[in-house]
């Protein structure tokens, strides 16, 4: 397998393997935004997002001795981040099963007054719309549209066929268009 690590990353990883913690904190600083993009994109801005983000790096740290650099660090972290986020969403769903109603059939346009106020802030509105997608659609949007992975890379990270990714992207866009109608039209 080809080693596709950035030279800087390779040096830092070698240092970490020799016990250099400062080198690991440099790696965390370098990639925390990548992980935040995935985790906050998937879970929203909440305390669990920070915990899951930390867990991503802890798993990376523990797996460093087996990490051979067949994927870049960003892709490797993204893979851990998306899996942990999906696990967290499942846990959340189980926890809230009895208390949260399924709103799949409701008109998804952002309507209530509080949300309308927030929608003045475009970024907030986009974030809210993203959180209203089902996790399976959200994950493809986060990887493809927010993180900028190609469709092929997205399929590989999520272990899905390309056709499934394309159809989920198409359906997600359709829903986002409705949710963000007041901004994009």
């Amino acid at each position: 397998m080809r080693n596709i690590l950035e030279p800087d990353d390779r040096k830092l990883i070698e240092k970490v393997k020799k016990g250099d913690k400062v080198a690991f904190s440099q790696l965390v600083r370098r990639y925390e935004q990548t992980v935040a993009g995935v985790v906050i994109g998937m879970l929203g801005r909440c305390s669990e997002a920070d915990d899951v983000g930390q867990e991503v790096f802890i798993r990376f740290y523990r797996a460093l001795n087996d990490f051979r650099g067949e994927a870049g660090v960003a892709t490797y972290l993204t893979r851990i981040a998306i899996n942990l986020s999906l696990n967290e969403l499942k846990r959340r769903q189980r926890r809230n099963y009895l208390f949260v109603k399924n709103n799949d059939n409701e008109n998804p346009e952002i309507k209530d007054e509080e949300n309308r106020q927030d929608a003045y802030d475009t970024k907030q509105a986009v974030h809210q719309a993203l959180q209203q997608l089902n996790p399976e659609f959200r994950s493809v949007v986060v990887l493809r549209m927010l993180q900028g992975y190609s469709t092929k890379e997205t399929a590989k990270i999520l272990k899905l066929p390309m056709g499934t990714v394309l159809s989920r992207l198409s359906r997600a866009q359709e829903k986002l268009k409705i949710l963000l109608k007041h901004i994009i039209e």
């Binding site: 913690k21 690991f24 904190s25 965390v28 600083r29 925390e32 935004q33 992980v35 935040a36 993009g37 985790v39 906050i40 994109g41 801005r45 997002a49 920070d50 983000g53 930390q54 790096f57 802890i58 475009t122 970024k123 986009v126 974030h127 993203l130 949007v141 549209m145 927010l146 900028g148 866009q173 986002l176 268009k177 963000l180 901004i183 994009i184």
Partner: peptide, 23 residues
């Protein structure tokens, strides 16, 4: 085009001192 532009512009960050919390 507008929708995808909005999504591409979304940037998220953890609260300050995230690396310290991990360490």
């Amino acid at each position: 085009d507008k929708l995808r532009g909005l999504l591409e512009d979304e940037r998220y960050a953890f609260d300050d001192h995230f690396a310290d919390r991990v360490m």
